[in-house]
């Protein structure tokens, strides 16, 4: 059973590491940090690196390529220092976060505030259920579409899903308030 104190310590270490990594603009330090995080990841290293790359590649790749092209056009050279430091920093910070997500129970780490951790548990569990049903809304339209559905019908379907979402949210709010009352959460 993980202790709340340990989880909180991991949370604080991660926060400190993120802030430190964000200050670094020296390729050697960034590479050293990245090496440490990769070592700490152990057997999960490939999976976590893949996730970190997938999560950041669209933005980082676009910015890196356009900046490199612009720099080349202006100065006939590549901004190597920028490319190396920024890409290292982005990868280091993303890996730090994915390692943290994998190794820490956030709900325990935030247990210093009973209300905050309760709020998070409630919100996350409901979000996941809502997300599954939204997937079904998409499939529901797909299964009834003989031809490509027009813009008007796609808006109707999206609005209907949004309306259903808020309806569900209202009902859930009601239910969990009752459940909390019956378990003596208030007063």
């Amino acid at each position: 059973m993980p202790s709340a104190a340990l989880e909180r310590a991991k949370f604080l270490v991660w926060l400190a590491a993120i802030v430190a990594a964000s200050w670094l603009s020296d390729a050697a330090w960034l590479a050293a940090g990245l090496g440490l995080v990769l070592l700490a990841a152990g057997r999960a290293v490939f999976r976590l690196t893949r996730r970190a790359l997938l999560a950041t590649l669209a933005f980082t790749g676009t910015v890196s390529l356009t900046y490199a092209a612009w720099f080349w056009w202006q100065q006939d050279a590549l901004p190597l220092d920028w490319l190396v430091t920024v890409n290292l920093r982005v990868l280091l910070m993303a890996l730090l976060t994915f390692l943290f997500i994998e190794r820490t129970n956030l709900f325990l780490a935030l247990g210093f505030s009973r209300r905050l951790s309760f709020l998070l548990v409630l919100a996350v569990s409901q979000s996941l259920a809502l997300r599954r049903t939204l997937d079904e809304f998409r499939q529901g339209l797909d299964s009834r579409a003989l031809v490509r559905v027009g813009l008007r019908d796609r808006y109707r379907a999206a609005a209907r899903a949004a309306g259903w979402l808020f309806d569900r949210a209202l009902a859930n709010a009601h239910e969990s308030a009752r459940a909390m009352q019956s378990r003596g959460m208030f007063r």
Partner: peptide, 24 residues
């Protein structure tokens, strides 16, 4: 008042799920 937490949680869940709706 006392319904704050469940209300905020439900609204958060809805706002989170909303980002999974495709804007046509």
């Amino acid at each position: 008042d006392e319904t704050t937490l469940p209300w905020l949680a439900a609204l958060t869940a809805a706002a989170f799920a909303l980002s999974f709706i495709a804007l046509p």
